[in-house]
C-alpha cells in the first residue's frame, strides 16, 4: 500500500491517481474472475452464438477498461481515495441480513422490529427509546397496509412450537 501514500519528502508518488488505480485494479480482477467462471461454457461461433460469448467478451472489455484506468493512474493527476464511513453500512447490512433470515422462520412481526432497531444504530444521532417507539409503530403500520390493505404475501407470525402460522 506504500505506493498509494504520498511521499513525505515531497517527491512525486508513482501513482498519481489512487482512485483510478484501485478502481482499475478491481475491474481487472473482477473481469478475470468472470472469465474464469465462464470457462466451462461454450462460446459458439458468430453464426450460432453460445451462452458464453456475450458475457466473456463484455468481461474482457471491462478488464481492458480497468487496464486503461491503471495506466492512466500513473500518467494523470487524479483524486485521492475517499474515506469510507463504515458505521451506516455495517448496521444497515446487519439489519438486511436479519430481515432475510427471520422473515420466513418467524415472520414479519418479529423480523421487522428486529431489523429496524438494528438499522437505526447506523445513524450517529440514534436515540434508542425514540427508535423503539418508531419501530413498533412502523411494524404495525406496515403489517396492516401491506398484508391487509394491499394483500401482499407477507408471513406475519410463524411460531411452530404453538403451531401458529399467520
Amino acid at each position: 500500500m506504500s505506493l498509494l501514500n504520498r511521499d513525505a519528502q515531497g517527491s512525486r508518488p508513482a501513482i498519481r491517481s489512487p482512485q483510478n488505480f484501485v478502481a482499475g485494479a478491481f475491474l481487472i480482477f473482477a473481469a478475470a474472475f468472470v472469465v474464469f467462471m465462464l470457462s466451462g461454457l461454450p462460446q459458439g461461433t458468430l453464426r450460432a452464438m453460445g451462452p458464453a460469448m456475450v458475457p466473456r467478451w463484455t468481461a474482457i472489455g471491462i478488464g481492458l477498461g480497468g487496464a486503461v484506468l491503471v495506466v492512466l493512474s500513473f500518467l494523470k493527476e487524479g483524486e485521492a481515495l475517499e474515506r469510507w464511513q463504515l458505521r451506516g453500512p455495517i448496521f444497515v447490512l446487519a439489519s438486511l441480513i436479519l430481515f432475510a433470515v427471520t422473515i420466513r422462520s418467524v415472520g414479519f412481526l418479529v423480523a421487522a422490529p428486529l431489523s429496524m432497531f438494528t438499522a437505526g444504530f447506523g445513524s450517529r444521532e440514534v436515540r434508542p427509546v425514540e427508535l423503539a417507539i418508531f419501530t413498533v409503530a412502523m411494524t404495525v403500520f406496515c403489517a396492516v397496509v401491506f398484508r391487509f390493505v394491499l394483500n401482499q404475501p407477507l408471513p406475519l407470525l410463524i411460531l411452530p412450537a404453538f403451531s401458529i402460522q399467520f
Binding site: L96, M116, T135, M138
Partner: peptide, 8 residues
C-alpha cells in the same frame, strides 16, 4: 435518523 429506517 428515523426516516432512513422507514426507507429500509
Amino acid at each position: 435518523r428515523l426516516m432512513f429506517v422507514g426507507i429500509i
